[in-house]
Amino acid sequence: MPNRQHLTPANRSARLFGIFALALLTFNYPLVQVFEKGNLLLGIPAIYAYFFITWIALIILIFKTLQER
């Protein structure tokens, strides 16, 4: 039960830095290259879908991390 855990400031900082590093990795080469085929995914260009889905995931991650106490 992650919500029960007590998140110390140092822990939270480490997790935020982790999210930052994760964002840098997912938004950059070579990961983005996987989706550059130019096909459509659910009617949207694949590369586009990739960026927006990871983007939403990041927002959720940040939100969750900052809500926990």
Partner: peptide, 12 residues
């Protein structure tokens, strides 16, 4: 994407 990536560090 740059600002989005760095936004977790706002708090720090």
């Amino acid at each position: 994407l740059g600002p989005v990536a760095v936004s977790p560090l706002f708090v720090i």
